[in-house]
Each structure stands twice: as C-alpha cells, then as structure tokens.
Computed example of a mutant assay.
Amino acid sequence: MNKMVKTSIAAALLSTALFANAAEAQQKIGYVNMQQVLINLPQARNLEQQVQEEFKGRISEIEEIEGKMQALQEKAERDSKIMSQREMQDMSRELELLDATRQVKTKGLREDMQRRGNELRDQLMAGVMRNAQALASEQQYDVVLSSNSLVYANENFDLTDDVLKKMTGGN
C-alpha cells in the first residue's frame, strides 16, 4: 500500500512537471495579411504604371496602326462614290491587313504586359516575404503564417502593419 501511494505521488509530480514545461515552451505565433500589404504598398500601386511605361513604344505603335485604320475608313466613307471598284477592293484589303496586324500586335503586347506585371508582383511578393521573415526573426517569433491560411486569429498576433512599416521605412 505504501508503495502504491509513493507511485501515485510520483506520477502526479511527473505529470505536473510535464505540464509546467509545456506552459513554459509556449510558442510565439503571428500572422501577416499579404493582400493588405500588397494593397497598401506604394510600390504595388505603381506596378501597372511601370508596366505601361516599359511598353509605351509598342502601345504607341498599336495606336498608330489604329489611327491609320480610322483614317482609311473615313477616306473610304468620304470618297466611296468617286472611287473605282478596284480602289475600294485595295482599300478594303489594306484595312484587313492593318486590322490583322493590330490584332497580332495587341495580343502579343497584352501577353507580354501580363507576364511582366506578374514578374514585378512576384518580385514584390518575395520582398514582402523577406521582410516578414526578418521581422519574425527580429521579434523572435517561432511561427508566422499567412492570414489566408487561418480560420481565426486574435488581432494581437497580426504583424501586417509591422511588415508594411518595415517595407516603407516606417512611413
């Protein structure tokens, strides 16, 4: 009987020690709302403008083709009564050729602009990730998650504003 009491006391002390260690080893966890960071970063707001600037030569080339098309259409409407059948056919072919060229160039431009925009967004997102990791390391977080992987989290664990401050130099 005496042995049983000692074993029970030892088990109780051991379980108490285990729970105490678990409480001491509590992890520091935070989260970042990546979408909100991207929306509020000045660099993200300028991405579209940067892409437009990079492709302005090709954009103006397409606008020039559209201008030629419009001028040809206006000429066809204006001079249709005095033009021969052959001249009308030639003008129609030229319009079709310009339209086909415009469509090909527009499609290529759209794809290139989208690809470049994605590259710039990926670079920006990599910067956000680096800054979030640096912040987590500086503040000794054990785990930092993206908010879209959470079901619920207390606002006290939100690092979004801190990441924004870090990326904008505290502004």
Rank of each mutant, 00 (worst) to 15 (best):
A76G: 05
S92Q: 10
N40K: 03
A153C: 13
L13D: 03
D162T: 03
Q36V: 02
L97Y: 06
A132T: 15
Y31S: 07
E87L: 02
Q133A: 14
S60W: 01
K28G: 15
V37C: 11
M4E: 15
E63R: 03
V128F: 10
A22S: 03
E64Y: 03
V128P: 04
M69I: 07
E155A: 05
S80V: 13
E96R: 07
E54M: 08
G108Q: 14
L124K: 04
M4R: 12
L95E: 03
K68A: 04
L159R: 05
L18Q: 02
L164W: 05
A25F: 11
K6L: 14
L145T: 02
R58T: 11
T106Q: 15
L14M: 01
L164S: 07
S84L: 04
M69E: 04
R102D: 00
A153Y: 10
T106N: 15
I9R: 08
R110W: 14
G30F: 14
R45Y: 09
R93P: 03
L38F: 08
N154E: 11
Y31I: 10
V104P: 13
G57P: 06
E63I: 00
Q85E: 14
S149C: 00
L38G: 01
T106A: 15
S146A: 13
G30K: 14
K107W: 13
N2S: 12
Q36H: 02
M83W: 06
R116W: 06
L13Y: 04
G117P: 04
M113P: 06
G170N: 07
L47A: 09
E66V: 09
R116K: 13
M1D: 04
G127P: 00
K75L: 03
D99E: 10
T106I: 14
I82E: 00
V144Q: 00
V144R: 00
T16K: 07
G117M: 08
G170D: 02
Q139M: 05
E74Q: 06
Q35V: 03
G108M: 03
E96K: 05
T7K: 06
V32I: 11
R121P: 01
E24D: 09
V104C: 13
N156I: 14
A100W: 09
N2R: 12
V151G: 08
S146L: 10
G57A: 14
N2A: 09
E119K: 09
I9K: 12
I29H: 05
R102H: 03
L47M: 08
M129G: 05
E48Q: 00
Q70I: 09
L95A: 02
M113C: 12
